[in-house]
Deep mutational scan, measured.
Amino acid sequence: AREMGVIAAMRDGFGFIKCVDRDVRMFFHFSEILDGNQLHIADEVEFTVVPDMLSAQRNHAIRIKKLPKGTV
């Protein structure tokens, strides 16, 4: 199932999404941004959540798609 959120932080090559449906900041890597979009803080996005290979306690966001403002 796809989830929605807002870009909360951007770093060098990765960032975090503030999720709508869960009280966490979800890690993502820039390589998972679809359509070659440039994302910025406060952009609204949808994404798929998958378990982190390195840590069973953590998840991360993949297949991130920018949404029109006002969607979330």
Rank of each mutant, 00 (worst) to 15 (best):
H29W: 12
V24F: 05
H60V: 13
M26E: 03
I7C: 00
V24M: 09
T71G: 02
R58I: 12
F30V: 09
P68I: 06
G13S: 13
R58D: 13
H29S: 14
G13H: 08
L67H: 04
F16H: 05
S55V: 04
I33W: 06
H29Q: 06
P51T: 07
V72I: 14
I41F: 07
I62A: 11
T48Q: 06
I62C: 09
N37W: 05
E44L: 06
F47S: 02
L34P: 05
F16S: 04
G13C: 03
I64K: 00
G5R: 12
M26R: 06
F28L: 06
L39Y: 05
R25D: 15
H40T: 12
H60Y: 11
I62S: 07
V50W: 07
N37V: 12
M53H: 07
M4H: 10
L39H: 00
D52P: 06
I17A: 00
F30P: 03
A42Q: 09
P51G: 14
H60I: 13
A8V: 13
T48N: 12
K65M: 05
N37A: 15
A1G: 12
P68E: 09
K69S: 10
V49T: 09
K66M: 03
V45S: 02
I17V: 04
N37M: 10
F47Y: 06
H29N: 09
M10R: 08
R58T: 10
I64A: 01
I17T: 02
I33T: 04
L67P: 01
D35P: 10
I64S: 00
I17M: 01
D21V: 06
F16Q: 05
A8P: 07
D12N: 08
M26G: 05
F30G: 03
V50T: 06
R25I: 12
I7K: 00
I64P: 01
T48V: 06
F47P: 03
T71D: 07
A1K: 14
D35I: 05
G36P: 08
Q57K: 14
R22W: 04
V72Y: 05
H60R: 15
H60L: 09
V50P: 05
A1W: 09
D21C: 04
M4G: 01
V50F: 03
V50H: 04
M26C: 12
F28Y: 02
V24L: 13
D23P: 15
G5A: 00
V45P: 00
K69M: 10
D52M: 09
V50G: 07
L34E: 14
A56M: 12
I41L: 10
A61V: 05
V20A: 11
A42Y: 08
E32N: 13
I41E: 12
L67R: 03
L67E: 03
G36V: 06
G36Q: 12
D35V: 02
L54F: 12
G70A: 05
I64R: 01
I62T: 14
V45E: 03
D12C: 05
M26A: 09
F30A: 09
R22M: 03
L54K: 15
V6D: 13
L39E: 02
F16A: 04
M4W: 08
E46W: 02
F47C: 02
Q38V: 13
V24W: 02
F14D: 10
F47V: 00
L34S: 10
E3Y: 04
N37R: 11
I7P: 01
N37H: 15
M26P: 05
G15M: 01
L67G: 01
P68T: 08
K69E: 05
F27A: 08
H29C: 11
K65N: 10
I17L: 03
V72S: 06
F27T: 10
E44W: 06
Q57L: 07
H60P: 02
N37P: 09
I17K: 00
L54Y: 13
M4D: 00
E32P: 00
I33M: 06
H29I: 11
R58L: 09
G36L: 05
R11F: 13
D35E: 11
V24P: 11
D52Q: 09
A42H: 12
T48S: 14
H40W: 06
G15W: 01
V72H: 02
F27I: 13
A8G: 03
D35G: 11
L54E: 14
K69D: 05
I17G: 00
G70W: 04
N59G: 14
V49M: 07
F27D: 01
L54Q: 15
K18A: 10
I33K: 03
R25P: 14
K65S: 05
I62V: 13
V24H: 03
E32V: 00
V24T: 10
K65V: 09
V50N: 09
E46G: 01
D12M: 04
G15F: 02
I17Y: 00
F47D: 00
N59P: 10
A61P: 02
G70M: 03
I33E: 01
I41M: 07
F47N: 02
E46D: 00
H29P: 09
M53T: 08
H29T: 10
R11S: 13
D12L: 04
F14Q: 07
H40Y: 10
P51A: 15
M10L: 15
Q38Y: 05
V72Q: 03
L39N: 05
M53W: 10
P68Y: 04
V24E: 15
R58K: 12
I17N: 01
K66D: 00
E3F: 10
G36A: 08
R63M: 08
R63T: 04
